[in-house]
Design a protein around this nucleic acid. Structure first.
Lengths: 202, 202
DNA sequence: TTCGTATGTATACGGTCGTAGACATAGATC
DNA sequence: GATCTATGTCTACGACCGTATACATACGAA
């Protein structure tokens, strides 16, 4: 058997199924963008992880920006920081605090949109930031604002999201010691009343 | 007058003063890193803004990472989110809230370290994140923790920094509508009691 | 005045990036 | 079974990145 014959052995040559391939790229993109941000994730890396060539990404999504837009939409609509019955305002602080402190290993979970949300700020490309901002406002901010009672609901909701984003950045991306080393349960006890204060509006 | 004679006209050919040049590069680096993050800022851009060649940056600072380390140190030690008499705990929430909502135009101000702090999370390079994390812990976290009374001072301080970072990201980098469009004074009224709650430790 | 050295520049190398264009082939259609 | 098209790959281009090497020159000491 001549060596030039076997392409690389191993992996089966991939079935030609557009829907399946598209979904694989999207899933790979969600993980990559969440883990490394828009600038940090390369289309070659995303494609390889999905088992395809980089050019297929562009064929399906037009460009890296197009892929990002779909990935963010997919991640945020599939599951949100805000996903329970919002009517129970009394326990919302505790619930959201628990959600923030979930480990959310980006390589394992389907990934709720919050890490993606956070990663949006990492780039400088204005169009990319715009994509992220609009999705955050449409999915998270709108839902949370609608649930809150009292004055300045939108501003309080925005502050809640800011707090969530800040904790995630400091804990998961930067690894700030008191957040990274303390148990989620202990942190939750400290974080929950702070969020609750914003929920109640003083 | 032959055209080949005048290099580019305009700018004087720069005095040869190592200290001045070094400082100019550092200042330019602070602005660039704060505005575009570590990955987003290029050494050519930083050098050009300081009026020198890219290679001078490496001559003075060894590498881009070395420059970043010095820039972060410079920005955070020069002025900090924490800069007033910390003994007045009763007004600390209001004071910090006001500080966060300062416009801090990165192209104009000497730049306190908070935007730099935030931008640190934007990269994926572990050594760069480490540089930022250590500086945050040494400058901001340590000072703030020392000022707080009661249990879990370090964790509460970390949450305060997280909230500050989150608000800055959402407001200045992402431009989340309720934060970007609302007046600083109004936001301060909402934000101050939240921070104060973490200062007081419930 | 001479000359050594600190200061700054010019050029280029190897690498990665996003993506354009030409080519290959599996699988449905007749 | 022949053919057509969607699906996927290969190669390469141009632009940027950080930085190493080689060169030019202003300044201070002799």
């Amino acid at each position: 058997m001549p060596a030039s014959r076997a392409k690389k052995a191993a992996a089966a040559p991939r079935k030609r199924d557009a829907a399946v391939t598209r979904e694989a790229i999207l899933k790979s993109a969600r993980r990559a963008f969440a883990a490394h941000g828009y600038d940090g994730a390369g289309v070659r890396e995303i494609a390889a992880d999905a088992g395809v060539t980089a050019m297929l990404v562009n064929r399906y999504f037009g460009s890296k920006e197009g892929l990002f837009a779909e990935a963010v939409d997919d991640a945020m609509s599939g599951a949100s920081v805000i996903r329970k019955d919002m009517s129970d305002l009394a326990s919302l602080g505790d619930y959201l605090a628990a959600g923030v402190l979930e480990t959310t290993d980006p390589d394992a979970t389907p990934l709720d949109g919050s890490l993606m949300m956070v990663r949006t700020g990492g780039t400088t490309n204005p169009r990319v930031i715009e994509i992220g901002r609009k999705q955050i406002e449409k999915m998270h901010l709108k839902t949370l604002t609608a649930a809150l009672k009292g004055d300045n609901a939108a501003e309080r909701a925005a502050l809640i999201l800011s707090l969530i984003a800040g904790v995630q950045i400091m804990r998961q991306m930067i690894g700030l010691t008191p957040l990274a080393k303390t148990s989620p349960a202990a942190l939750q006890k400290l974080l929950a009343p702070v969020i609750q204060q914003l929920v109640d509006g003083k």
